[in-house]
Write a protein that binds this DNA or RNA. Sequence first.
DNA 1: AATTCTAACTAACAAGCGTTAGTTTTGTTT
DNA 2: AAACAAAACTAACGCTTGTTAGTTAGAATT
Lengths: 189, 189
Amino acid sequence: MKTLSRKEEIINVAAKLFKEKGYSAVSMRDIAAGIDIKAASLYNHITGKQEILSAIILKVAKEFTQGMESVVAEKVSSIKKIEHVIELHIDITVNYSDALAALNNDWMHLETEDLKAFVKMREDYEQNFRTILKQGIEAGEIKPYHPEVILFSILSTLRTLYLWYEKRGKLDVNILKKDMVSVLIKGIV
Amino acid sequence: MKTLSRKEEIINVAAKLFKEKGYSAVSMRDIAAGIDIKAASLYNHITGKQEILSAIILKVAKEFTQGMESVVAEKVSSIKKIEHVIELHIDITVNYSDALAALNNDWMHLETEDLKAFVKMREDYEQNFRTILKQGIEAGEIKPYHPEVILFSILSTLRTLYLWYEKRGKLDVNILKKDMVSVLIKGIV
DNA sequence: AATTCTAACTAACAAGCGTTAGTTTTGTTT
DNA sequence: AAACAAAACTAACGCTTGTTAGTTAGAATT
């Protein structure tokens, strides 16, 4: 357990508050109160509210981008790749569940460069996933549904996992992985 | 095409803006500008910002509650009931896609009575869905996974469908229903 | 012991917020 | 044409917002 720098502390507290009320409804005074200092003191550590949001979102977005690129490069079946994408999401959810709320709900409050960077990462990520699915369909591993329906179905489940993970008392990660893979890939009947 | 009352117009414009930026980031002046009047004029038609949010969210929440109760009362197999829940979500998504954004992301900004009413409806809804799944598992129609994993997986897909429906150019509803049912129930392998 | 640096503080700013009061315009009913 | 109601307007209110300036206390470095 490394001790956190003040900046990391600010970002963690902010992420938790953003998760509860959303970026716009959280004030700098709220964030400051969360670590028992005054709002003006925050500016000794960060340049502004925007920097906090960027730090939260882009860090996790990079983890997704990087993780997805690793999976794409693997020399395994498409189904195995999808399994690994599911596991990637679960791992990130477990480690950054507060940040994921901001990534899902507050990305539109990013500005200029950061917004563009985020949107690009998100598009690339989806495109990689789409490619995996199409290859799986071509190879006959996956039923020939419209790839968009499959993509959306799996991705929306994975993206909102953070809402659900904490509520159910932080279940065992390995059991979660096994069950999620089964339900999402093999169906329920 | 019935002509809208001013109040309905306000609510529709607000819902669209809430979808784009979230409740807290949308000002009364923004909403007013959306129908080309001044902010103060809104108050001839509504009592305040809160009433707009309540109107948007509770209307749709009631549709879900009512629809789910109809499905539960049906004398059909559990699988058929799940199919009908999926179709219910798709129908509501098509008719109220803006309102669904507020329902998903801004419900926590409801106050007192309205907040309590919403949370109760949501819990009841999930409980009904859970019951359908458990009966399906008991009857051997559904694989014996942990019902929570199935519930979460299907529900999170359906709840974020609004994000996806408009982006893909408003696909045909019947095709969408057919594909979603297949993917969510039968899996992809 | 003197100096520098870090991170807190108080005070205040201009701008924007939701909302209210009072007035004027618009369109309908008598 | 006069009277009325509905719905717009202008102006302003008290409050909160993100942020800046200037100051101070304590720790680290010289």
